[in-house]
């Protein structure tokens, strides 16, 4: 394996380098995200669990891309490796043409991330968090302030004022994380379950902001369990099951002849008759 680490850094875990990054970029010119041979295994033999099994994927620039799959399919693991938060065992990831693991400076400047289940800097207020992250990225303080004010207004967080992030509701946390992801105006947004456990009002605001972002040329890649939402928002979709991509492409193509994306999904992941049979005792007696 060829180590594509930037020069001068000490030795560490090998940077995945298959296939050659520049060649991959040329092959997929016009893609916002390219994944090739990405693999992650947790645990040691004989109890290892293949979370992501050498997947390939290309996401067209400007698309609204949904990554769907049942729990444990490998969506979060994939997005964690794509965003540089989890080291893959093999494979390569290009975001806007930049290798996430060999050129993290270029790649991370071009992506905005909303992970699922990770904390924020809890003892800062929303405006303080945005100001800190924007200035850390090297953005001038007045630009950060102006964008932060607009994002807070549009995402309906103005009422939170000086409340600490620790005191935010789930919906507010998703919205402030989305604001942080968009602050530096990246061409690609990677969102892990952005609408999970979010109230309907916040969900509508997030959907509206994301739609505006893709209309302006940005690419949104998000994971979700909610098929209706994916069908409504996305232009493209990839279905994951047991660590593999079982279908990917424009949404109409993936749905095929099925009545809905939900039906197509059930068929693809093989979950037809789940929930049937048994439980004859249910409701028959109080104890």
């Amino acid at each position: 394996m060829d180590d594509a680490r930037p020069s001068g850094l000490p030795s560490g875990p090998p940077v995945p380098a298959y296939p050659d990054g520049s060649q991959l970029g040329r092959q997929h010119a016009g893609s916002a995200l390219v994944i090739s041979g990405l693999r992650k295994v947790f645990g040691a033999p004989p109890r290892e669990k293949v979370a992501v099994d050498s997947i390939d994927l290309a996401v067209p620039a400007g698309s609204f891309f949904g990554l769907v799959g049942p729990n444990g399919a490998g969506k979060t693991t994939t997005l964690s490796m794509v965003t540089g938060l989890l080291r893959p065992d093999a494979g390569r990831v290009l975001v806007a043409g930049h290798d996430v693991w060999a050129d993290p400076v270029g790649a991370k400047a071009r992506m905005g991330v909303l992970p699922d289940g990770l904390r924020l800097f809890e003892r800062l207020s929303g405006p303080e968090l945005l100001s800190y992250l924007g200035r850390l990225r090297g953005m001038p303080a007045d630009v950060v302030r102006q964008r932060s004010d607009e994002l807070i207004q549009v995402l309906d967080l103005a009422e939170a004022g000086g409340r600490l992030v620790a005191d935010y509701s789930t919906g507010m946390r998703k919205k402030i994380t989305l604001a942080a992801a968009m602050l530096h105006s990246p061409p690609v947004l990677l969102l892990d379950e952005p609408l999970e456990a979010v109230d309907p009002v916040s969900a509508r605001i997030i959907r509206s902001v994301l739609s505006r972002y893709t209309r302006a040329g940005g690419t949104v890649i998000f994971s979700s369990h909610v098929m209706a939402l994916v069908q409504e928002l996305c232009s493209h979709v990839a279905v994951m099951a047991q660590g593999r991509i079982v279908a990917a492409g424009p949404i109409d193509e993936v749905r095929g002849s099925a009545a809905s994306l939900d039906d197509a999904f059930m068929d693809l992941v093989g979950a037809g008759e789940v929930g049937e049979g048994g439980l004859s005792w249910l409701g028959s007696s109080p104890a």
Binding site: R123, S125, S131
Partner: peptide, 12 residues
């Protein structure tokens, strides 16, 4: 603890 908007102007 009180919190508010940031007035710090240092840039990374």
């Amino acid at each position: 603890a009180p919190a508010g908007s940031s007035t710090d102007s240092a840039v990374g």
